[in-house]
């Protein structure tokens, strides 16, 4: 089973990369009013078939490793 996880910056945390991309897009004529950059992960866990077990494990991985709770939040997009 593959889980998809998105890590986002919390609201209010400065996102200089996102801002730069936004500025560049606006320069190109796209009228972007907000842009925030995040991270996306695809995770497969060996031998795990039960969705709720996978979810539990992936939540632990995301909370402990993938995301820094001071500035980021995570969301499990999909398990399939």
């Amino acid at each position: 089973m593959k889980a998809k996880v998105i890590v986002r910056l919390k609201d209010g945390v400065l996102d200089p990369q996102g801002q730069t991309i936004q500025r560049s897009l606006n320069k190109m004529g796209h009228e972007v009013t907000e842009l925030r950059q995040g991270k996306y992960f695809e995770i497969e866990i060996n031998g795990m078939k039960d969705e709720s077990a996978v979810r539990q494990r992936v939540e632990q991985i995301a909370a402990d490793v993938l995301c820094n709770p001071i500035i980021e939040t995570f969301e499990i997009e999909d398990i399939a």
Binding site: V13, L14, P16, Q17, T20, N68, I70, I71
Partner: peptide, 16 residues
Amino acid sequence: QEAGLLPGVMLRNAGL
């Protein structure tokens, strides 16, 4: 910081 022994977190430099 990541280990929680010191406060705060480092973001990318403002100048990127």
